[in-house]
Simulated scan of single mutants.
Amino acid sequence: MIDDGNTYEGTQAIEGWLNRSATEFTYTIHLAGAQQTDATHYIAAHHLEGNFPGGAIDLRYQFTLRDSLIERLVIAP
Rank of each mutant, 00 (worst) to 15 (best):
T7S: 15
N6I: 13
A22V: 03
P77D: 06
M1G: 13
G55Y: 05
M1W: 02
L31R: 12
D67M: 04
D67C: 05
R20W: 12
R20N: 14
I70A: 04
Q62L: 01
T28D: 14
Q35W: 04
A32F: 01
P53G: 06
I75K: 02
F63L: 04
L69Q: 14
E71A: 15
S21G: 01
G5M: 04
A39W: 06
F52S: 06
G55E: 02
I57A: 08
H46N: 09
G54N: 05
L31V: 11
L59P: 07
D58W: 02
R66P: 12
P77E: 12
Y27M: 04
H47N: 05
G50V: 03
E15F: 09
T28G: 12
A45C: 09
T28N: 10
H47F: 00
F52A: 02
L48K: 04
T37G: 07
R72V: 07
H47G: 00
S21F: 08
G50W: 06
N51D: 15
T7K: 14
A44E: 02
R20L: 12
P53V: 05
S68L: 09
D3M: 13
A56R: 07
H30S: 13
D38P: 02
S21L: 09
Q36P: 05
R66Y: 08
G33A: 05
A44Q: 07
Q62P: 01
I75S: 01
T7E: 15
I43Q: 04
D67W: 08
L73S: 01
Q35K: 13
Q12T: 15
Y8L: 07
T40S: 15
H30K: 14
N6M: 13
I29H: 06
Q35M: 11
